[in-house]
Simulated scan of single mutants.
Amino acid sequence: MNRIIQILIMAIITSLSFSCMANDQNYGKQKVVYHVNYDNATKQSSALRNIQNHINAVGADNLDIRVVMHGNGLSMILKPEALKETPKFKSANADQVMSQKIDKLKLQGVSFKVCANTVKGRQVNIEKHLYDASNADTVPSGVAELAHLQGQGFSYLRP
């Protein structure tokens, strides 16, 4: 009788193990930096969707995601009403839809970083012109931040 119980327990454990493997790829902990330096709103929205899909697959608790924006990439968080005051930008894409996507990602732990060189060179007022950004979100150089994070073991993605 004990042998039958042992076999049944082992069968249940094996079944549960395979069931968990089928539903959970178990990617483990990941550190990822997403690079945005383009002003195309459709492409930026697609990048945010990729980030959400990444979170859905791996789990927010298993991810450290940073989004580094520089150059034209700042248009992703540039408020539409700021465009007339920031003539060095062609687009201002932080409309309600984009802002909601960004908010949702931030609530899941995604960090958005802004290049101080772009802010200075394009005369951007962080608090006034950028959606939900502050001085604490700036990095001295977007490209230097990308290299630094890659040196810290972050995987680089540019969707």
Rank of each mutant, 00 (worst) to 15 (best):
A60P: 04
Y34E: 10
Q150Y: 02
N72T: 01
I126T: 03
R3G: 01
V110S: 00
I55K: 08
H54G: 12
D137A: 09
I51G: 11
Y34P: 04
N62K: 13
N40Q: 11
K120L: 11
Q123I: 02
K104N: 11
M21H: 10
Y38M: 07
A133R: 11
S99A: 15
Q108W: 00
N72K: 03
Q100T: 14
N2F: 07
A47P: 02
A92Q: 00
K29W: 03
R122T: 06
I102G: 05
L107Q: 11
I51P: 10
N50G: 07
I65V: 15
T138V: 08
G121Y: 02
G151P: 04
S99T: 15
F112G: 03
Y27G: 12
H54C: 09
Y156F: 08
Y38L: 07
M98Q: 14
C20Y: 10
E145W: 10
Q152R: 08
G153S: 03
S91W: 01
F18W: 14
A92L: 04
S134T: 15
K120F: 08
G59Y: 11
N135M: 11
L16C: 05
G121V: 03
E145S: 14
V110T: 04
F18S: 08
A133M: 15
K101C: 07
N62D: 13
L105Y: 01
R3E: 14
G151I: 05
Q30T: 05
V67Y: 02
Y38T: 02
I7T: 12
S91D: 07
G151N: 12
M1V: 08
K84A: 15
K101L: 14
L157T: 06
V114W: 07
S46G: 01
Y27S: 10
T118C: 08
S134F: 04
L74N: 02
L74R: 00
C20V: 09
K84P: 06
A136D: 15
Q96I: 12
L48W: 12
K101W: 13
Y131A: 13
R158Q: 15
Q30H: 12
A136M: 11
M21G: 08
K29S: 10
I9H: 01
H54W: 13
M69V: 01
S141A: 14
S15H: 03
R66Q: 13
L146A: 05
K88N: 07
D24L: 10
F18Y: 14
Q123P: 00
D95M: 12
M98E: 09
E127W: 01
K43A: 11
K29F: 10
V139T: 12
Y38D: 09
I9P: 00
L8P: 02
S91E: 11
V33E: 06
R49F: 15
L16G: 00
L48E: 11
T138P: 03
Q30V: 05
